[in-house]
Amino acid sequence: MFAQVLFSGLALGSIYGLVALGFAVVFKATDVFNFAQGMFAVCGAYFAVTAISALDLPFGLAILFMIAACATLGVLAHIFLIQPLAGRSMLAIIMVTIALSIVLRAGIEIFYGPQGRVLTTPLPSGVIRIGDLRISQLHLIAALTSWACMAIFGAFFRFTSVGLLMRATADGHEAALVSGVNVNAMNRLAWAIGAVLAGIGGLFLGQLQIVSPELEAIGLLALPAVVIGGMQSIPGAIIGGLLVGLIAQFAGSYISPKSTDIVIYGLLLLILMVRPWGLLGQRELGRV
């Protein structure tokens, strides 16, 4: 049982980590706490439904379509909502992301109708047995994809010039401005990345269950993940996501399914009291 719970926690945590990573990228670059991240995941799932069911695209193209659509959504959100609010209070910007998710949700419900949609992909749905351990292939693929995405973006930030510029921009806007970096372009890129990561998470969630606007809840689960990991830290988001997934599964199995929220948010409170910058974050005082 332990191994089984461990695996499912890691698989689930990987998806959380993916969405949380998108969250962290946006936050690090633009200081925006994006409450629409959950809705971005929902949009990703619906884009995939559109590509596969309505446009009849082959799976690979459908994924590309989904990624392009999510990236566009992220960029548009930045241009039309975040940029006009530059320099405004944190609350105003949080509020605009909440309003965005209200609008997106209504749009999805008008366009796709009230019923949940089934996402049919050629991804394997069988089971791999290792001794007593049963590993769902879909979970495994979700986890592997998440890790691949994390690795790709990790490398992107560390080794590519655009990635380095993004980090530089995130660390100090003035310095980047002086050196001639197009800050807005960098920020749009961050929003595109954030939305794409959420979209991939939504794709897997939609595959594991059913595509409906209720998948939005993933966004709220990514929240404790980023805080626990450290809001300014890219690897922190991943670790945070994994931790939240593991805690959810272990608390659910060994304490009671009801206890998961309390345990997760209890840990969140503890972290905030003891180490507010998160497990992997950089100590940064007076950040308001």
Binding site: Q4, V5, L208
Partner: peptide, 8 residues
């Protein structure tokens, strides 16, 4: 999003 504990 996952019901492994319940199924266990």
């Amino acid at each position: 999003a996952d019901v492994t504990p319940q199924v266990q």
